[in-house]
Amino acid sequence: MAVDEKYQAIAIGASAGGLYALSSLFEQLPAEYPLPVMVIQHRAKDQKELLEEVLQNKCKMIIKQADEKEKIKRGIIYIAPPGYHLLVEQDQTLSLSSDELESFSRPSINVLFETAAEVYREKLIGVILTGANSDGASGVVAIRKNGGLTIAQDPQEAQYPQMPQAAIDNGVDHIWTLKEIQGFLNQLFVQHRNEKD
């Protein structure tokens, strides 16, 4: 791996309408995608692993529910278990907590974004997708403060515009449609492959 790779990880937050948005982002990504992806999707506590199964059927990358203290690996999409916050530790492992709700949610996008920003700093990409609340809005601020890149789904396109709009109100680098975000994520892979050749 080139040590000076521009990005090391992607964190994505989605709420209402998220399943469609997530699967259209992930569908095209190759199995050997060069970055790890961490996802917060708000969902009911008793949903267990339904989301993971549905997404796995559509994607080539490995989709897995995040486990306690597991080492973060490239090429894997980690999804926060329902009812637990997902956090990134300094040694690039994942941890879970059942702390209080944040922005009325557990898992909360802010918790993932803020802890991931402290670890990956300018090498983190944060993406806020459709949702009917404002979780993630302070998370994008943390990512920007640490020099990372922030993207919000275009609220005009989002099934529920409130969440990306709240992020945009706090300031993001790009406001993109799903297609544009997808193009950007794909191009990271192409770049990575070319650099290796």
Binding site: K69, H85, L87, V88, E89, Q90, S95, S97, D99, V111, E114, T115, E118
Partner: peptide, 9 residues
């Protein structure tokens, strides 16, 4: 203790 959540608290 796991550091990330301890720090947040």
């Amino acid at each position: 203790y796991s550091e990330a959540s301890m720090k947040r608290r």
